[in-house]
Write a protein that binds this DNA or RNA. Structure first.
Lengths: 237, 237
DNA sequence: CATTCTCATCTTGTCGACAAATAAAATTCA
DNA sequence: TGAATTTTATTTGTCGACAAGATGAGAATG
């Protein structure tokens, strides 16, 4: 713009690769609450930040909008979607059901490669817990459960579960300062039990353990919300 | 382009309204199989057809891609997604579960306005059945069940259910020529029973009826597929 | 005659610019 | 002073054009 012709494009990785980069970057920032709910998103600003035209930026935003992570008001500025506390009950309901269903299906359909991936994520989660890395816990926990869902071989459940876990990440991120110290260790053990039941191809036990795990997490989040004074101030508009 | 300056834009409805028009038009054409699975989608061609630039066309395509209705290969032409017969078991599984869950929740949470909408769609379905309008049946049946899902007040379930019902529309559309004559009438009766159970707020009966209804539909589709010789030739990709 | 390389053409991905719509600021009028 | 209205400015939606990558035809070579 100002420097002239010599500066082409620094990190023009691939033709079409910039879009997914913007998409994933923004997606992570939204889920990790680096972009606060309700904060406006300026296309021109992003265009400068990623040093690319508004067109690919726009495409990434459309994708995020389709996922419900941002809300696009026509002709007005688009904003980061709010965390919908009104639908919290629906969230817990669906989350619990997906925990159960994916655990059942994983016990039925998993193969050795699935198991390897699951164990890997469980190890990462365990590491994050012992290191006291709360953000790592939240992320690796999500990956662990998503790996179980993948082993279940049902894309419909996997897709919904991913959406739920990501919404959950945002909520947990909001309350992570009060993240308890002993609960994560318990989660590690519960994960191990779930893996054992899956290996035994024991559908009913897998279901039961998943239910308990889900109930535990729901209870945890509920207690955070009721204990935290911010819960009311976060309910915007 | 050639005529000069006098022709501006004929149906420039609203600024930003063209995108959703393209989106919905293409969406319906894909679901109704007017656009065959695997058929290529040319942006320039659509640009001429809707008499607008490629930019809004592209935005609609990104949305459809996010929904999984079209598959975009980078730098290559995008195609209408295939009906995934490999995942058919997963489809039936998720469909049945959503029938059950939404019926349960509707019995718990519906209000009078929901009931009115549901009855309206049921009437439309009934009309389509008596008129022998197969395409109308498929569409109104979808709307009926989606209305029940809405009454359940859980956006996660509603969104997944919509996706499932639309995938189901494509499959039914593929086999509609063998659509049986007496089954639809039975469906009308089953729908009425489901409404009655909902009004009685009887969760367990709603669940049971939904399960039976789902099993019936799954059985129907399965019989079509096994009876139809096209089932193998349609497995493209 | 088959195979590989080259080149032309076509489609997509990206860009800069302009127009419409909205939000903000300034001005006028009661 | 305050409310209504005009003006300005910012931001989004759309456009036409160009460049990168891909597809396919035809030439060249073995």
């Amino acid at each position: 713009m100002s420097k002239g012709s010599s500066e082409r494009k620094v990190a023009q990785v691939k033709r079409g690769g910039g879009v997914s980069h913007v998409y994933e970057t923004l997606r992570n920032e939204i889920i990790d609450l680096k972009l606060a709910p309700g904060s406006p998103i300026d296309e021109t600003e992003l265009s400068e930040r990623f040093s690319m035209s508004r067109t690919p930026i726009r495409e990434a935003l459309v994708r995020l909008s389709a996922e419900g992570l941002i809300t696009a008001l026509t002709n007005r500025t688009t904003v980061v979607s709010n965390i919908d506390f009104v639908q919290l009950g629906a969230f817990f309901d669906a989350l619990t059901l997906m925990y159960r269903v994916t655990a059942r299906l994983a016990a039925q359909h998993y193969d050795e490669s699935d198991l390897a991936v699951i164990r890997e994520h469980q190890a990462s989660f365990s590491n994050a817990v012992h290191a006291g890395d709360v953000l790592g816990m939240i992320a690796t926990n999500r990956d662990f459960h998503l790996a179980i869902a993948s082993a279940g071989r049902n894309k419909y459940y996997t897709d919904l579960f991913r959406r739920l876990l990501d919404d959950g990440r945002r909520i947990l991120r909001l309350y992570y300062h009060s993240y308890d110290d002993n609960l994560p260790r318990q989660y590690v053990a519960e994960h191990d039990h779930m893996i054992s039941a899956m290996i035994a191809r024991d559908v009913e036990t897998s279901d039961r353990l998943a239910t308990e795990h889900a109930d535990q997490i729901v209870r945890q989040i509920r207690s955070y919300i009721s204990a935290d004074s911010r819960s009311t101030s976060s309910i915007t508009f």
